[in-house]
Write a protein that binds this DNA or RNA. Structure first.
Lengths: 207, 207
DNA sequence: TCCTACACGTGACAC
DNA sequence: TGTGTCACGTGTAGG
């Protein structure tokens, strides 16, 4: 049973010291003139080169390399994979938690969509009416989609834009919200019907 | 220059065919009786075993293995790492987007906290008053912390629990919300002052 | 000099 | 039959 023949003594070594780290160096140049015992020499050479290339590629994927050794490259790759897996787990958990906490918001939005549909199904349209009921006093009636916090935003906007509400009534039904109120100018300003109606339309569009 | 001496012909091969896949097989048993030319034989054996172990560990980390080859193991590990990196990027992007969209909610909560503090600083306390103004008609006054959507929830709860609101007035100031309303039983039921006050306190506690 | 890590060619298998 | 993969012992370069 023969193994590792003695014909290898003639192998030619050439000292190329163009080392790239420790891996990937080429110490020996192949001598195509001499005869080899094994026929699978080229296949083995290809196999070695392929494995070396893969290892090099793996090294390029891993950010932190402690050593250039083959074994350490694989070891670093393993720790990097573990790190990535943990990262993925952490992120997905965090994402799941966030989705759980924002479930309420999603529910709210779905409620609002349902409210809008119900409102349209019942033939109720958004509407603004303004009537002069006294000197410097207007009576307004607003019909709008019921959305969470929309009444508060409406009151805030009206107050901010100089409409003082003296008596306000709110009713909600079939996905719609009806607001009727007596308003006057915050600083005793006289309000025209057209002016106020345009103002209210602007407010409703923005909230 | 000597290379690969002929003394290796005596190497003993034993045919163990307990193959685990293709990697990790032990075809050759070491013969400690014979003499070896190289002194670094054991070191080389250790190095080979270590590298093989690392490769085995790497294989165990990667879920999908197309082949048991050394090169393919590394290749699969590379693709797995790329997959994991892409996964991390996707998840972190999604998380960032979610945080951005939930910024509004955080702002709302901070507003509510500020409102509650402002309200307490002004010496305003939550309060419920119920007065009988007519047969089957009560006048109620509620002071409570202003929170987004709380008025809507209040009206919904009152309606659901059998309180019909006939005339309602809402004012917000200094982080507080004042609701005054005339109420009667939804189905003509008579309401007592105590009953209604307890009901309102329950509602406010839960919204 | 010693030690570590590497590439080499080779025989043995497996498909 | 041939092609591909593996482990082996070895020589050598660099520390």
């Amino acid at each position: 049973m023969e193994f590792l023949g003695s014909a290898m003594n003639e192998l030619c070594f050439t000292q190329e010291s163009n080392r790239r780290g420790r891996l990937g160096r080429r110490k020996v140049e192949y001598d195509d003139t001499r005869e080899y015992k094994s026929k699978n020499l080229h296949a083995e050479r290809r196999r070695r080169q392929k494995l070396s290339d893969r290892l090099l590629a793996l090294r390029s994927m891993v950010p932190i390399i402690t050593n250039m050794n083959k074994a350490t490259i694989i070891e670093d790759a393993i720790t990097y994979i573990q790190e990535l897996q943990q990262n993925v787990k952490l992120l997905s958990d965090q994402l799941l938690e966030m989705e759980g906490s924002s479930e309420e918001a999603v529910q709210t939005r779905s409620d609002e969509i349902n409210a809008a549909e119900e409102m349209k199904n019942c033939g109720i349209m958004e509407d603004v009416q303004v009537t002069n009921i006294d000197r410097n006093k207007l009576w307004i009636k607003i019909i709008l989609e019921k959305k969470r916090g929309r009444f508060t935003r409406l009151i805030e906007a009206m107050t901010y834009l100089g409409l003082e509400l003296t008596d306000t009534n709110v009713a909600t039904s079939k996905g719609a919200m009806l607001v009727s109120s007596c308003v006057e100018g915050s600083y005793g300003d006289t309000l025209t019907v057209e002016q106020t109606k345009d103002l209210l339309l602007e407010i409703i569009k923005s909230i």
